[in-house]
Amino acid sequence: MNLIKSKATLALRSLAILFAVIGLLVPETASQSADSLEEELSSLKLKLDTWRTRYRFLCNQYREVAANCSAAVFNCSQCPDGWFQVNDQCFFISRGIRSDWVTSKKNCTENGGHLAILTTEEQHEAIEKESRRIGGFYTDFWIGLTDAENEGEWKWVDNSTLKTPFWNKLRSEPDDNKSGGEEGEDCAVVDSHSQSWYDVPCNFAYLHICQMDAVPPQ
């Protein structure tokens, strides 16, 4: 038990130090001249990203230790109102007006995220649960996957290559069907209820799913 308490104390001290260092980053930026502001902002963003990653690691480590003793447990991250959380990621299912893939991508960017990059069964299960909760007639949603640049080379909106596909194999997807136009089917939607993907023409209109990183609690 003493070992567990020592680990919990260490985790708490690490979190306190982390918050203190992050707090020091702001005045450091304020002291710079206007000429170097752009470079300093880039450097600060890199530092913040590094500390966020470190924070998530330490917080998760603390939660594991706290679960075995009487230490208080708290959330390591949170999502904006209206978004739902899966591990360290936030997701938002749009409602109302449907749009094409490019417009949907822009809408997600304007809301601080990107079209969803779905890589796990857990994410698909959470999306199915949320889509059923909010109801609605539509179950197909744009995700951030396309092979518009090179046919058959599917990439996510962050330019990473598709590694774990969830194509609907019963329908032989992706099939690049030309019935929707000569350009074929270069963008992907997820059927939230079957948790599988289809390739469709990018100019078709669907609702969409946005994604962003969860952030430390304020």
Results as ranks from 00 to 15, higher is better:
118 L>Y: 01
60 N>E: 13
26 V>R: 06
58 L>P: 03
28 E>S: 11
47 K>C: 10
101 W>S: 10
82 G>S: 06
119 T>C: 01
126 A>M: 07
92 F>W: 11
96 G>Q: 08
38 E>M: 14
43 S>V: 08
88 D>Y: 08
96 G>W: 11
49 D>H: 08
65 V>K: 13
111 N>R: 15
97 I>Q: 13
82 G>R: 07
101 W>G: 07
53 T>W: 04
47 K>V: 02
133 R>Q: 09
33 S>C: 07
106 K>Q: 12
139 T>I: 09
60 N>F: 04
55 Y>F: 15
106 K>A: 09
30 A>P: 00
27 P>V: 01
133 R>N: 03
96 G>Y: 12
81 D>H: 08
43 S>A: 12
27 P>D: 07
84 F>G: 09
78 Q>N: 14
39 E>I: 01
137 F>P: 11
126 A>G: 05
137 F>K: 15
112 G>N: 11
116 A>E: 01
88 D>C: 07
107 N>M: 10
66 A>I: 03
44 L>A: 13
105 K>S: 05
131 S>W: 02
91 F>K: 05
92 F>I: 02
98 R>V: 09
104 S>D: 05
110 E>C: 00
117 I>D: 08
106 K>D: 05
90 C>L: 01
95 R>F: 09
89 Q>T: 06
29 T>G: 00
81 D>P: 05
70 S>M: 11
70 S>A: 13
91 F>Y: 15
52 R>L: 00
132 R>Q: 15
81 D>Y: 04
59 C>V: 13
127 I>D: 00
72 A>V: 15
30 A>M: 15
101 W>A: 10
83 W>P: 01
137 F>N: 15
37 L>V: 06
87 N>F: 09
111 N>S: 11
138 Y>Q: 12
73 V>P: 00
137 F>Y: 10
88 D>G: 09
64 E>A: 13
118 L>K: 00
85 Q>P: 10
51 W>I: 07
138 Y>R: 14
114 H>N: 11
119 T>D: 10
139 T>H: 12
100 D>E: 08
121 E>C: 00
142 W>V: 10
65 V>D: 03
43 S>N: 08
61 Q>Y: 11
90 C>E: 02
56 R>N: 12
56 R>Q: 11
138 Y>A: 13
141 F>T: 13
114 H>F: 06
80 P>A: 04
96 G>S: 13
96 G>H: 14
24 L>F: 11
132 R>N: 15
30 A>Q: 14
38 E>C: 08
95 R>H: 09
143 I>G: 03
65 V>L: 12
125 E>R: 15
132 R>Y: 09
88 D>M: 10
45 K>N: 14
130 E>S: 04
112 G>I: 01
134 I>T: 15
53 T>H: 10
103 T>S: 15
36 S>K: 09
86 V>G: 06
55 Y>M: 09
142 W>M: 02
66 A>G: 06
73 V>T: 07
83 W>M: 02
36 S>M: 13
121 E>H: 07
42 S>L: 15
42 S>H: 10
113 G>H: 05
137 F>L: 14
131 S>G: 06
86 V>Y: 01
138 Y>L: 12
68 N>T: 06
135 G>N: 02
47 K>P: 03
36 S>N: 08
37 L>T: 08
46 L>H: 10
134 I>Y: 06
137 F>Q: 14
